[in-house]
């Protein structure tokens, strides 16, 4: 069931190309704004600013794209899902799909950043690894929050208010990892952060899995 739902998400997403195009354009314009505001010269920003800009861009585009996993959908589709699938299968498929989406977004962001601004990363493998873990964490916690926010009135504002405090722990770990990857220091120095990020991911996935049925019921 989970795989069928994931396939359905991908097919739907590829069919409505405007959404994908919208998200990519959003990311692209964010990065372009960063590029313009920090003057046009290369190498003019310090690695610390680079990592701050990068994670801010990723955070905003990820929150916006994951938000629509429940907020944008029509009432009728919800009722249809309710009839055919268990809530656990739905949340798992959403988490996996959103992980892929976030990973694509952050990899795309990384590519555009290195193209337009700079690429001061020294340890690429570690950086991509932390991108993957962070994407997974974002997807797990934001999917659940999007489910909560979709039931409320002003869901778009609420999405931001509810999600930012929750993802800060993930973001802090990811920024620490980025710092290590920027300096290119030995991998063993980053195992603590990697394990912590993994633990936070496990907790938020487990909680999303357990709590989602209660949101779904209404």
């Amino acid at each position: 069931m989970v795989f069928k739902l994931i396939r359905k998400e991908f097919i739907l997403e590829l069919r409505r190309k405007s959404v994908i195009a919208g998200i990519s354009l959003y990311l692209f314009s964010l990065i372009f704004i960063c590029y313009f505001t920090f003057s046009l010269r290369q190498n003019s920003i310090s690695p610390a600013t680079w990592s701050a800009l990068f994670w801010l861009t990723i955070l905003f585009s990820v929150v916006n794209s994951v938000a629509k996993s429940f907020i944008g959908e029509k009432k009728g589709t919800f009722i249809y899902y309710y009839g055919v699938a268990s809530p656990q299968a739905i949340i798992l498929s959403k988490i996996i799909y959103n992980t892929v989406l976030c990973l694509l977004l952050s990899l795309g962001g990384y590519l555009l950043f290195s193209l337009f601004i700079d690429n001061p990363i020294q340890d690429h493998l570690l950086f991509v690894g932390s991108l993957f873990l962070a994407s997974f964490g974002f997807a797990a916690s934001l999917s659940l929050i999007s489910g909560i926010a979709s039931k409320a009135n002003n869901s778009n504002i609420l999405m931001a208010v509810l999600s930012f405090p929750v993802v800060i722990a993930i973001l802090l770990m990811a920024i620490n990892l980025t710092k290590n990857a920027l300096d290119g220091i030995d991998r063993s120095a980053s195992t603590d952060e990697l394990l912590n990020l993994l633990a936070i991911n496990c907790i938020s996935t487990a909680l999303a899995y357990l709590l989602f049925p209660y949101i779904w019921r209404s």
């Binding site: 909560i148 405090p165 929750v166 800060i168 909680l207 949101i215």
Partner: peptide, 17 residues
């Protein structure tokens, strides 16, 4: 119901912080 769900989730997010 929704605030109970958020309460549990928020508490778990608070612990690492």
């Amino acid at each position: 119901r929704l605030s109970a769900v958020y309460n549990i989730f928020a508490f778990a997010a608070m612990v690492p912080l």
